[in-house]
């Protein structure tokens, strides 16, 4: 049977379109090469989003894998009303949010001692003062990156989801609304509240 699948993969390799719609169509028809291409196209973004939502690499890898398997297996039910990308993200985010709900760990640990003096001062300067530090330089620091992820973990899962999809995944409000199946107004209010809460958490951490 494995040999048969490998033969199918080889046979289909010469018939690939880079267009997402045709990839999806071929994947639905059982073309494993198209399936592989779809996975390769979205694996990093899906994994990154899930990691930012759940905060654990092993869980993120497992959830991402589960999301892809469900999406590919459910291709026969995909009606194309939204893009495959939105559909895949919806599956991934819902899986992750359900996972977070089941494995919620409320952390009351303060983030104040997470940064060393230098990184803390730099982040404080950046958030409070008008001193212009390059944000990419700052975020590149492992400690600052870790602090931001921990601050994200402290957010309510729904707020965390919209903040991650907007600020990290760079989705538009409409895409977020489609992915999370909610109204745009809700997306706006959740983004505002999520950012405010995150800012407060970060500012408290650098005080």
């Amino acid at each position: 049977m494995v040999k048969f699948i490998q033969e199918r993969l080889k046979a289909a390799s010469g018939n690939i379109s880079i267009d997402e719609a045709s990839l999806v169509a071929q994947a639905r028809a059982g073309n494993m090469d198209s399936v592989e291409r779809l996975i390769l196209k979205y694996q990093d973004r899906i994994y990154n989003t899930i990691l930012k939502l759940c905060g654990n690499e092993a869980d993120a890898a497992e959830l991402a894998q589960d999301a892809f398997i469900r999406a590919i297996q459910g291709l026969k039910d995909f009606k194309g009303q939204s893009s495959f990308y939105t559909w895949l993200f919806r599956i991934a985010v819902n899986l992750t949010l359900n996972f977070c709900k089941k494995n919620s760990r409320v952390s009351f640990q303060s983030l104040q001692n997470e940064l060393d003096e230098d990184a803390g001062r730099q982040l404080k300067d950046y958030l409070v003062d008008k001193k212009t530090t390059d944000p990419s330089e700052l975020a590149a620091k492992k400690e600052v990156n870790g602090l931001i992820l921990k601050a994200l973990e402290k957010l309510d899962p729904q707020q965390r989801a919209v903040v991650v999809l907007r600020d990290i995944e760079q989705m538009s409000y409409t895409e977020i609304a489609n992915t999370l199946e909610m109204e745009i107004g809700t997306v706006k209010s959740r983004i505002a509240r999520g950012r405010k809460n995150l800012r407060e958490i970060l500012e408290a951490a650098v005080q």
Partner: peptide, 11 residues
Amino acid sequence: LMGAVASDKAP
């Protein structure tokens, strides 16, 4: 700052 947070790649 959030936009500058490093993206993680799939394993």
